[in-house]
Amino acid sequence: MMRDITLGQYFPGTSVLHRSDPRMKLILTLIFIVFVFLAKSLWAYVWLFVFTFSLLIVSRLPVKVILKGLKPVLFIIAITVIFNLFLTKGEDLLFECKFIHIYFEGVMFAVYMIIRIVCLILGTSVILTYTTSPVDLTDGIEQLLSPLKKIKIPVHEFAMMMSIALRFIPTLTEETEKIMNAQKARGADLSSGGLIKRAKALIPILIPLFVSSLRRADELATAMECRCYRGGDGRTRMKRLKYSPRDLVLFLVFAAFGTGIILLNIFIPYLVI
């Protein structure tokens, strides 16, 4: 059933990462991404790799499931590896066969790229998407970006749209399923024929879905007006995000991680790209 798809890939839990402030986690994600790209030497990459897997362990997420989740990225990794392996020219030739030349530098680049991609995806999802509920995430973005309101960027409206979208994903998924069933019951054939035939077969599903979404939007807007909604001005929140000492500690840990990358790059410049 489509309904059972885990939304936003959030895994509920109680680890340090789960409990820290979503705003802090957004900041940490940014810091993390920056330092992933700053790693240059072998030891910096090793440090990055170790740090990312420590995060995974600290988060107490089901490691097997998370690693399985990397499957879709394998393709990208494979392509990067092939490009780096065959197209990098260097001095230390390892292998030669007709027009294929593999240099030591190529192998090194390939390994670095694997680490970089894996850490980037694993790290950001462990810090943010796997451990933060979509609702908290939206709140975090809204409150973190709220200074932008001063320069007339509609931060509140954006966050409101996001949270309504989140709220309606399961509803619309269910509705799509219902409409598909209704049309199948009238003999609609959704699974055979060429591309054009299949695209045409979607019309009986997309039109009702579109019509009903408009109706829902209309009713929701009325309901929101009835509940005194009039934009972000003068609005308070039940839950105010508060930084806790936990967040500070986490921040220091990430600062140490960043410093480590820089120091390793500078002081042990072994196999630098």
């Binding site: 609702v135 949270s163 009713e219 929701l220 929101m224 005194c228 609005r235 039940m238 839950k239």
Partner: peptide, 22 residues
């Protein structure tokens, strides 16, 4: 379905009072 705004029950209930600036 068309009058609930939040994907968490208590946050939905809070929506009205939040709009009132309480």
């Amino acid at each position: 379905d068309n009058q609930l705004v939040s994907s968490v029950v208590e946050e939905d209930v809070a929506f009205g009072p939040e709009n009132l600036g309480i």
